[in-house]
Design a protein around this nucleic acid. Structure first.
Length: 431
RNA sequence: GCGUCGGUACUCAAGUGGUCAACGAGGGCAGACUGUAAAUCUGCUGACUUCGGUCUUCGGAAGUUCGAAUCUUCCCCGGCGCA
């Protein structure tokens, strides 16, 4: 039984881009698609009903965060993440690989998902693999990563096998291999070293996943054979088992800024039997498009690709053009909570003085609940008064904006109008 | 009326002779945010500036002093107590 099924419907002629359909145990998703981030099993400030209403196809939760709180065992006991968070659509979980980075080298620094490598002060000099005396919450070893919990300081050790175990307990439709996300400021020698680790971890993740899928399949078989004998027991088992449906595993390509390493990684990961692929790493803005292109030229065409953690409007066009099927990004929800809103003419900050008496909606062409019912003046008031409804209304708008933008991009591919749509949108957005 | 405590920037509030254009908090103004340590973080918030400084400020006025938000005198305003 296959976990997912991916069909390409239409390609952008002479480019890597395509539109398709991904079928999962919790429904079909038209691609390209935007995955809304709900790290701790909640898209901050939104209910799942609101998500559904604004057209969110799929959400991404995080292994590391849910493992620490409330614990993956508890979520398994609750009947899996879908049931626990009341979301019956598809779910992905990230492996914790990004936390290796954000709680490791990036800890306490101004290094994030997209950085300016032109700043020499950020460059990391030659160093040994793990111990260099820099305070951080994650320390990398070859076998796995030691994390110090950001919640209570307790020590945890995550290996590829552990990450997969947690992700099976959570029970998302699509899970990710445990990887090491590196900073583009790392030197080439370190990138190479980290890449070998990521590849070894990918293999181990895959083996652990297959083992567990096999166990699950036989368990399901015995459950279904018992079903005819003892129905009530089976119901109980079903309730207590997170994922009786098969889960898909995506491998992650790394390689930093180097073309050689990126291509090498795409080849090695692409040859492993994953259900799809993630493209990871912290990028320098200027080499994001080339990195994506190098990788997608090599990855198997018939499998879905996910550009991890990227999602500004310009990046979405770039990614789609270069063969990306899925994006996820915290930007829409995070910037919403901080008062920034997407509009067709670029981002605005609702806290700016000029919006205090602006009785228009955020974007006159937007069909979201917030735009249909509220003015910028009201949003301005909510943010100034620090009322939590502000975060909700802003998040509804931003998630709708990005989700809808990717849907429009998808439609433009189906209509053979991708580049027209891109030009039209960006011209207005960036002016 | 007497006594007493107080009056500091938009607000609250430190400071009680030089290191004070004046701590801190709030507010205000702007900026950042890309697999969420994030309802968070950063900068600015007397005026002018060639960014080195220059000028005007701590209820008002007059003093003491090389030097005052800080000490003295008087005045104005407020709280409290006693008449």
């Amino acid at each position: 039984m296959k976990a997912i099924d991916f069909k390409i419907e239409k390609k952008i002629p002479n480019f890597l881009g395509r539109a398709g359909i991904l079928s999962t145990p919790h429904g079909d998703i038209g691609t390209p698609s935007f995955v809304v981030v709900g790290t701790k099993g909640t898209v901050k400030s939104l209910t799942t009903e609101q998500l559904k209403e604004l057209g969110t196809p799929i959400v991404l939760a995080n292994t590391y965060h849910l493992y620490l709180q409330p614990g993956d065992e508890l979520i398994k006991e609750a009947g899996g993440l879908h049931k626990f968070m009341n979301w019956d659509g598809p779910i992905m979980t990230d492996s914790g690989g990004f936390q290796v980075f954000s709680l490791g080298v990036a800890y306490g620094k101004e290094i994030s998902k997209v950085v300016s490598v032109t700043d020499p002060s950020l460059l990391i000099p030659e160093r040994s693999t793990a111990e260099d005396g820099i305070p951080r919450l994650a320390t990398i070893g070859n076998d796995g990563v030691s994390f110090r919990s950001h919640i209570d300081g307790s020590l945890h050790y995550i290996t590829p096998e552990k990450s997969i175990e947690i992700q099976h307990n959570l029970g998302a439709d699509i899970i990710f291999a445990f990887d090491e996300c590196t900073s583009p400021t790392e030197n080439e020698r370190y990138q190479d070293e980290a890449l070998s680790r990521t590849h070894a971890w990918a293999k181990r993740s895959l083996i652990e996943h297959k083992k567990r899928e096999k166990e699950k399949a036989s368990q399901n078989y015995s459950n279904s054979s018992r079903f005819t004998l003892k129905g009530s027991d089976t119901d109980k088992n079903l309730n207590n088992s997170a994922a009786l449906f098969p889960q898909a595993l995506f491998g992650i390509v790394q390689g930093g800024r180097s073309e050689e390493l990126r291509r090498k990684s795409a080849k090695i990961i692409g040859e492993m039997d994953f259900d799809g692929y993630g493209i990871g790493g912290s990028f320098a803005k200027e080499d994001m498009s080339t990195a994506v292109k190098w990788v997608n030229e090599i990855l198997p065409e018939e499998k879905p690709r996910h550009l991890l953690g990227i999602g500004e409007p310009e990046d979405l066009f770039m990614g789609v053009e270069n063969g990306v099927d899925f994006f996820d990004c915290v930007a829409p929800t995070r910037i919403a909570r901080n008062g920034s809103l997407f509009t067709k003419n670029g981002k605005i900050n609702i806290l700016n003085t000029k919006f205090i008496k602006d009785f228009n909606n955020i974007d006159n062409r937007c069909e979201c609940y917030t735009c249909k019912n509220y003015t910028k003046a009201y949003l301005s008031h909510l943010f100034r008064a620090k009322e939590m409804l502000g975060a909700t209304l802003a998040s509804i708008h931003n998630v709708y904006f990005i989700t809808n933008l990717v849907k429009q991009i998808r439609q433009s591919i189906l209509d053979n109008k991708f580049f027209e749509f891109k030009e039209e949108f960006l011209e207005e957005y960036e002016k």
